Amino acid sequence: MNNYNILVVDDDSEIREAIKIYLKNEKMNIIEASNGEEALKDLENADIDLIIMDIMMPKMDGIKATFKIREDKNIPIIMLSAKSENTDKILGLNIGADDYITKPFNPLELVARVNSQLRRYNNFGHKESKDEIVVRGISLNKSTKTLKVNDEEVKLTPTEYKMLKLLMENKGRVFSISEIYTKVWKEPFINGENTVSVHIRRLREKIEINPKEPEYLKVVWGIGYKIEK
């Protein structure tokens, strides 16, 4: 049996403790957080396989935390909601939660839902590894140097791979044309604008549904390009 790491996020310590007892019986490792801010920090420091996320919490609630997590991670998220939180529950599902369970809940049902999500994710999902960079629907494998867009493999030239790797490893950061050129081509930037622009256009044709209205590879006018988080 896999020793999955489960992040339990709830401001009620008694609920966290109850969940921990039942999941430890399933040989799972439990990491606890009392709000969304703590959860985001835990995600940076540990390899998490699944998140159980309460909606109503101080500092950062479960909706905001889920939205932030879904910017670049595909980890299964099960939301905990009170019956009075139906609107938030629907919002949570719409922004990327995989399942929900209503408080008060049967712990055995929660365990069953956790196991179900882990099976689905590991059999059919896309678990990000240290060799992969994932930004929503696109994933770049640094070991095999392969690109998948919505689970379909897309062929890249060596230069396209280097450029996309640079941008995906630094998602959200804007690179000037000269920076891209010197980092990818490893030579001084002299009249390289057209060269970079041509490769940007080709990359967009490969990763974007509509290259004229890019979802991933964005231009920041007067500055350069970035991969949108």
Rank of each mutant, 00 (worst) to 15 (best):
M1N: 12
M1T: 13
V9H: 06
D10F: 09
D12Q: 12
E14G: 04
I15T: 14
R16A: 10
I21N: 08
Y22P: 00
Y22H: 10
N25M: 11
I31N: 03
A33V: 05
A33L: 06
G36Y: 05
G36Q: 06
E37D: 08
D42M: 14
E44I: 00
E44G: 06
A46L: 03
D49V: 01
D49R: 02
D49A: 02
I51K: 07
M53T: 08
M56E: 10
I63Q: 02
T66S: 11
F67C: 02
I69K: 05
E71F: 03
P76W: 04
I78G: 03
M79P: 01
L80A: 09
S81Y: 00
S81C: 06
S81D: 00
K83I: 12
E85W: 08
G92A: 03
G96M: 05
G96Q: 06
D98Q: 11
D99G: 04
D99H: 13
Y100L: 04
Y100I: 05
Y100F: 15
K103D: 05
K103V: 04
N106G: 01
P107K: 00
E109A: 04
V111E: 05
R113N: 02
R113L: 05
N115C: 09
N115A: 10
S116G: 10
L118I: 13
R120K: 15
N122Q: 08
K127G: 02
K127C: 00
K127D: 00
E132W: 00
I133R: 11
V134T: 14
S139V: 14
L140Q: 07
L140H: 07
N141C: 08
K145V: 00
K145P: 00
K145W: 01
T146Q: 13
K148H: 11
V154H: 12
V154S: 07
V154Q: 13
V154G: 07
K162Q: 14
K162E: 14
M163C: 03
L164K: 13
L164Y: 11
L166N: 07
G172Q: 02
G172N: 05
G172S: 02
V174P: 08
S176D: 04
Y181E: 04
T182P: 03
T182G: 02
T182R: 14
V184T: 10
V184C: 07
W185V: 04
E187Q: 14
I190R: 14
N191T: 06
E193Y: 14
N194D: 07
T195L: 08
V196M: 06
V198S: 11
H199N: 13
I200N: 07
R202P: 00
R204S: 04
E205H: 11
E205W: 05
I207H: 10
I209C: 05
I209R: 15
V220A: 11
W221G: 13
G222Q: 09
G224W: 15
I227Y: 10
I227K: 14
K229H: 12
